[in-house]
C-alpha cells in the first residue's frame, strides 16, 4: 500500500490533530481507517463537506486541532461555509483528493475537478499541491504549521496523478 498515506497519518499525529472529519472517499480510505483505529483521534463521518468546515471551527473553539478529508467534488459544497473561516480567522486544514484531472474516466468529475483550486482560492483558501509521493509528508506538515501559526485556511490538493485514476472499464 502507498506509503504517502501513512505519511499523512504520521503528520496528523505529530501535529497533535485530535479530530478528523471526512466524507468518504476512496483516495483517503486507508487514512480514514487509520484515524478510526487511533485511540487519540476522533474520526467523524459526515454527509456533506460544508458540515466539516463548521465542525473544524467548533473543534478550534474547543481547543483541538482538526483536519477535513474530502474529494474535489466536495469542495463545491463548502463555499458559503468557508466564509465562517474567513470572518473569524479560523485555522483550517483540508486534504483534497483530486478527481477530474490526470487520467479521469468519469466525465461528471471533470467540471468540479478542473475548477477546484480556483474555487478554493476565491473563497480565501491557500492551496498547496502534491503530485509525487515524496512531496506529501513535507507538504502536509507545512500546511498544518501554516494554518495554525497564522490562523489561515489551507487545502492540500492530492493530485490524481499521485492517487491513481479510478478505472471503471476498459476502453
Amino acid at each position: 500500500m502507498s506509503e504517502w498515506r501513512d505519511d499523512i497519518f504520521d503528520c496528523l499525529q505529530e501535529a497533535g490533530v485530535r479530530q478528523v472529519a471526512y466524507v468518504p472517499d476512496a483516495g483517503h480510505a486507508r487514512l480514514i481507517d487509520r484515524c478510526h483505529a487511533a485511540n487519540n483521534m476522533r474520526a467523524v463521518s459526515l454527509t456533506t463537506e460544508e458540515d466539516g468546515i463548521a465542525m473544524m471551527a467548533g473543534a478550534w473553539l474547543g481547543g483541538q486541532k482538526s483536519v477535513l478529508l474530502m474529494q474535489s467534488s466536495g469542495v463545491g459544497n463548502t463555499i458559503n461555509m468557508l466564509s465562517l473561516m474567513k470572518n473569524c480567522q479560523f485555522p483550517l486544514v483540508t486534504l483534497v483528493t483530486m478527481r477530474g484531472e490526470w487520467g479521469e474516466w468519469n466525465t461528471w468529475q471533470v467540471p468540479m475537478g478542473q475548477t477546484t483550486q480556483g474555487h478554493l482560492e476565491l473563497a480565501g483558501v491557500v492551496c498547496y499541491r502534491c503530485s509525487k509521493p515524496e512531496e506529501v509528508k513535507d507538504t502536509v506538515a507545512t500546511a498544518l504549521r501554516f494554518a495554525y501559526y497564522t490562523n489561515s485556511a489551507v487545502a492540500v490538493l492530492l493530485s490524481q496523478r499521485l492517487i491513481g485514476a479510478k478505472i471503471f472499464a476498459e476502453d
Binding site: 485530535r18 479530530q19 472529519a21 476522533r42 467523524v44 459526515l46 460544508e50 458540515d51 466539516g52 468546515i53 463548521a54 465542525m55 473544524m56 471551527a57 467548533g58 473543534a59 478550534w60 473553539l61 474547543g62 481547543g63 483541538q64 482538526s66 458559503n80 461555509m81 466564509s83 465562517l84 470572518n87
Partner: peptide
Amino acid sequence: TFYLWGAMGGAVPLAIGLAVAQ
C-alpha cells in the same frame, strides 16, 4: 456564546466539533 451571523446550516456541525473537544 458563539453567535453565527451567517454559515447557515452550520450550528449543529460546529457544535459536534466543540462537544468532542470539550
